[in-house]
Simulated assay, not measured.
Amino acid sequence: MPQQDIYRSPSGRQLLLDGYRAQLAAWPGTPEQRHVPTPEGETFVVSAGPLTAPPLVLLHGSGSNSAQWVARFAELTPHFRVHAVDIIGEPGLSAPSRPEPGTDRYAVWLDAVLDQLGLSEVDIMGYSLGSWLALDYAIRRPARVRRLALTCPPGLSRPRKGYLLKAVLLAPFGRWGKRRTVVGMLGRGLSTVDLDAVVEHTVRMSTHYRYRSGELPVFTDEELAGLTIPVHVVVGAEDVMLDAAITKQRLETHVPRATVRLLPGVGHLVPPQDSELEFLTAEGSRHG
Rank of each mutant, 00 (worst) to 15 (best):
E42N: 08
R13P: 00
D115P: 15
S64T: 02
I88P: 09
T202K: 11
T202I: 14
P2T: 10
T52L: 14
V203R: 02
K248R: 15
Y7A: 01
R105F: 04
Y163D: 03
Q116H: 09
R286E: 03
I87P: 00
H83G: 06
F80L: 08
S97Y: 01
L148F: 11
S47W: 05
L117V: 05
G102K: 14
A245P: 10
F44A: 05
A112Y: 11
A197Q: 15
A84E: 04
I6P: 07
E40V: 09
L277S: 02
V233I: 03
P31V: 03
L170T: 10
L24T: 00
R158V: 11
D115A: 12
V233F: 10
P78N: 04
E32H: 14
R261N: 02
L24V: 04
P28D: 07
P142S: 15
P271D: 14
W109N: 15
Y127T: 05
F279H: 08
P28I: 11
H254M: 01
V168F: 13
V113F: 08
G189I: 06
A237Q: 07
E200C: 03
V57E: 00
T259E: 07
L251Q: 13
I88D: 00
L263I: 14
A245I: 01
T30E: 08
S213R: 11
Q14R: 13
I139H: 14
G174N: 05
A237F: 01
L150F: 05
W132C: 09
S9D: 10
R140V: 12
L135H: 14
G19H: 07
S66M: 01
A134W: 06
E283T: 07
R212W: 15
R81T: 06
G265L: 06
L186T: 03
R140Q: 14
G49C: 02
L150C: 13
A25F: 02
L156D: 00
D111A: 13
G155L: 01
A171S: 11
R140A: 15
W69C: 00
L114T: 09
D123T: 11
A171I: 04
Q273P: 09
L170I: 07
A245F: 06
S97Q: 09
Q4M: 05
D5E: 07
T43F: 03
G265C: 05
S9P: 02
A53C: 07
